[in-house]
Design a binder for these strands. Structure first.
Lengths: 199, 199
DNA sequence: CGTTGGCTTGACCGGACAGTCAAGTAGGTT
DNA sequence: AACCTACTTGACTGTCCGGTCAAGCCAACG
């Protein structure tokens, strides 16, 4: 869908995306109908199809936006790092903070990962983020700051810890405090065996 | 749905569950219709509703079965452990092996975690498994085999590593070899900083 | 061989849903 | 004022879906 949009049009489009994000996250993608979205906004159904080709395209657009925002945040965090290993820590912290602050986006990512219709689009973005992380890890290995290993696989391990712990925060199992993030960082850096006394 | 089932009935029920598992995993729960399941099996639609109250109940039954099987495998693995830390390693290995061997179940778990209609049922089971793991971790801390920390949170961190790496195996990003499991175990035990040379 | 009850059939129902479209509105430009 | 075009409306369509049900089938048992 490529359409010339006025200022007003852009706002309407954003409004649709924001409301749909909320509904999809709370109610699920499939169970949420297009009519539910337009009615929730008090507009006619045609409005939706003026801005989006389909419900699927809408979700794809939402996911792309969210990924862009997350990556911006990650890049900004890592760019100020004093050393590779500091970059790792900043990356983990920034990712977790963002994910905790954006529960709806996080939830949509989780859903999209289970559906091939959307997963393919996500993978590209995840790939880029993981490659970035792997580069930092490789640099840290090079600098002797961390032990040798498969940088890509380790990046994914970090991602796994991040994802699962954030999920628990959103479920209310863990409090959204810095303690959780600290614990995640400690675990990623030291594992179970060799954890610093401060943990 | 409580119904007296003959041998034949039990087989039909299992057949429905097995086929639905496959379809749900490949095509998604919502996009897969009941008619698709019964037609795929070459039976009338009424057969489905003889064995299950609804599509939802079917998925719940599948998930419960899968969880039971996984927990059996985990318990068997951990029961033969020589020490708490050996139990941790066995638990991780058994869980990953099971998840790699049951991609459809794994995928349904992932989906169910994104949908409140099913997530609640899953949590109980996950809770039990995590509590088991936390007990082993606590014992290992007690025995001085691993550093002190929040055993529950650390169990979840292990779960996060497990889940994400298995996901990659199913996506074909990683080969389903023991190397992946070895790397996961190493990461969980030593983190990034203090990894043994063998890694 | 008749009866019981587990099992199967498939047409049917009410409703919901994604997407369309002809008609209309309104803000900006000339 | 006339006009253009971005935007909006909401009834409508065709389809599909979850679930029902009256009727029939058949294996087992007495």
């Amino acid at each position: 869908m490529d359409r010339k949009l006025t200022q007003r049009g852009e706002e309407r489009r954003s409004q649709l995306m924001a409301y749909a994000t909320q509904r999809f996250a709370q109610n699920g993608f499939h169970p949420t109908s297009v009519a539910e979205i337009t009615e929730g906004l008090g507009v006619g159904k045609g409005v939706f199809y003026w801005y989006f080709d389909s419900k699927e395209e809408l979700l794809r657009a939402i996911l792309a936006d969210a990924q862009l925002d997350l990556r911006r945040r990650q890049r900004a965090a890592v760019s100020g790092a004093a050393s590779p290993s500091d970059g790792i820590e900043r990356g983990i912290r920034a990712s977790m903070e963002w994910s905790i602050q954006h529960p709806d986006y996080f939830r949509l990512f989780q859903f999209a990962a289970t559906d091939d219709r959307f997963n393919n689009g996500l993978r590209k973005g995840e790939q880029v983020a993981v490659n970035d992380a792997a580069k930092v890890l490789a640099a840290a290995m090079e600098a002797g700051e961390i032990a040798q290993g498969d940088a890509t696989l380790l990046s994914h391990a970090l991602l796994g810890v991040h994802t699962h712990l954030v999920h628990l925060v959103h479920r209310g199992v863990l409090e959204p405090t810095d303690d959780v993030i600290d614990a995640a960082v400690d675990f990623c850096l030291h594992g179970l065996l060799d954890r610093p006394a401060s943990a």
